[in-house]
Design a protein around this nucleic acid. Structure first.
Lengths: 337, 337
DNA sequence: TGGTCAATTTACAGCGCTGTAATTGCATAG
DNA sequence: CTATGCAATTACAGCGCTGTAAATTGACCA
């Protein structure tokens, strides 16, 4: 059971280490006789290759790390699932890194203390602007998710947050809503994501000839259903009146739904609500959520494609890819007839 | 920028490799002068230790793998979050492995092809019985989550599913419910978890002098809100009548809530619902969910404690630890007055 | 019987770091 | 002024695998 080495297998089979190595790797030019002899020896000794040694010799780890604030946020969990699957299909294992949205952890992601830990990193920052990321960057291939355009020395994948926010807001306008609020962005220390969505919201109101009423822009102490619900409760208690709500994400929408219902307001009759992310739960809330659905499969694929190109040695400028999204209409803000 | 080695730093500082290594590791017996000289050289060259080489030399990887069916299930995502945090605090990084609940992937988890990939594995099986796990087991430290008691050569952490199911069911009985169903377990190929919960449900009904009506035991095609909702919809369309529902997990409960509401039934007035897991969403559904809340922090801590003992060389028999849970009463099955 | 060429197989030098054992330097005691 | 002991530092042999280049084998043909 103790550590069996390539050497041991080689001795038992009476061949060189390299031949055993070739058999293990299905190297084509190995004669059938040799192959079966070696395989027998491998089976007899219960040999298993040592990953660390292989990595040291080849310089590749076969691992990618995926970094974002918090896996327990459904959007990230669902994204992690997809990326993990695709990465596995490409022969990589996935390391999970949570930053909790603190800038220190984010810096730690970008400037790794150790070399040779992973072959590449997929990172969705929430605090660091890409300018700083570009500076801190070490020589590990890196692809950013969900960041805005910026001094690009690093690859990016994102959806057009602004356009999506415009679409969501315009949908509420088309439903005849006039007092449309925005819910769930950070109160201070705005993330780039929230900012882009807010911008789209404002642009759409503007285009519809509506003015933004700042009392209807309701920040939340954190990205969570709880904080969003609290924020909306306070706004309602405060006497704010709205007939439509664009939410920073589905969690905020779920919190808002809850607060509205507690307050005796009907969704969508009294207040129409649009969420963001299309987490799987969005189809099962009551009412179900109309929401922006980023094409996470495409996001994951684009990110992995670019990452593999970098790993393969590509050193061009940062690329900036826009992934698709769709607008999923459900009960909380039904289709316009 | 190219690879700087310990050797390079040593030459620049005019000392031996080992001294540099000692500085890097904060080895106590290094004179202050030497230390600062070496640190200057490290900074000048931008040296970063190579993880693979270190691992090969020490035999430790500093990585744990966490394996379960699917990170996008909220319970697992939330568990992963906690385990990742605690693991980080103990100096480990977490590798994510999803099995999709297939027995092949589960076998792959237990009988790793490569040695030296991770120092230990935390694994929540959904298909493999622990007897088979015990057989397939390679020599990587392993702790199982959520498995039932069984031929124990492997460590386990679980909550008392049966007792919790009894408590949940008894709560509905105490609310005066007499036609209590069970929702959301697998239709075929029952997971151990579902089985234990079903057993508790039956025992509690039995203890209350109620007979189990098999038409109220509603399996679901998969562990998801969607399938649970479909199953409940079919049951209702079928004319089945119930006034209480014990759900295999919160996802099933959320699906059930949705199907009941579509059918015009009020929760909890017409049907009281109890979920399981206390995922963070459980407090924000409408109505919020009464649910079994496993102490995931404790589960994670126990698992890591045992795993570290194994990594440290402990080779005793498998231990079987029972973690706490609490019963959280919310709107979907309110407190008995 | 060689000669030629391609298919197999091998020897060996690292990959970069750590553990062990040995060595050096230096202060204190005798 | 030497003996003693301890702290600081070093030399070096691996950890187990792979890539390279060279060696061997064998088939086939002249």
């Amino acid at each position: 059971m103790a550590n069996v080495r390539l050497q041991d297998v080689a001795e038992l089979a009476g061949v060189s280490m390299k031949t055993v190595s070739n058999v293990v790797h299905d190297y084509p030019h190995v004669s059938p006789g040799m192959r079966s002899r070696v395989e027998a020896a491998i089976a007899e000794l219960g040999y298993r290759p040592n990953a660390s040694a292989r990595r040291l010799a080849t310089g590749r780890t076969g691992m990618l790390s995926l970094a974002f604030s918090d896996v327990s946020l459904p959007y990230f969990a669902e994204l992690a699932r997809i990326i993990a699957h695709l990465a596995t299909a490409r022969g990589y294992r996935l390391l999970l890194e949570q930053t909790d949205g603190t800038i220190e952890s984010e810096r730690a992601i970008v400037s790794t203390r150790e070399a040779g830990l992973v072959d590449g990193v997929i990172f969705q920052p929430s605090r660091m602007p890409s300018l700083e990321i570009a500076k801190h960057r070490e020589d590990v291939p890196l692809v950013l998710l969900g960041e805005g355009p910026a001094p690009l020395s690093v690859d990016h994948v994102m959806i057009d947050n602004e356009a999506a926010a415009i679409e969501a807001t315009a949908h509420l306008v088309a439903l005849g809503r006039r007092r449309i609020g925005f819910v769930g962005h950070e109160e201070f220390d705005q993330s780039v994501t929230s900012l882009q969505r807010l911008t789209g919201y404002q642009l759409a109101l503007d285009a519809a000839g509506l003015t933004v009423d700042m009392s209807l822009v309701i920040p939340s102490a954190a990205i969570s259903a709880k904080e969003a619900a609290d924020a909306v409760r306070r706004a309602l208690a405060d006497g704010r009146v709205f007939d439509g709500l664009v939410c920073r994400d589905d969690l905020a929408a779920i919190g808002a739904l809850r607060a509205l219902q507690e307050h005796g307001l009907r969704v969508p009759e009294d207040v129409a609500v649009v969420g963001w992310d299309d987490i799987s739960m969005a189809a099962f809330t009551h009412p179900s959520l109309t929401t922006i659905a980023p094409d996470t499969g495409q996001i994951a694929t684009m990110a992995l494609d670019m990452l593999e190109e970098r790993i393969g040695g590509y050193t061009g400028l940062g690329r900036h890819r826009i992934a698709d999204y769709s607008f999923v209409v459900r009960e909380s803000a039904p289709r316009v007839d």
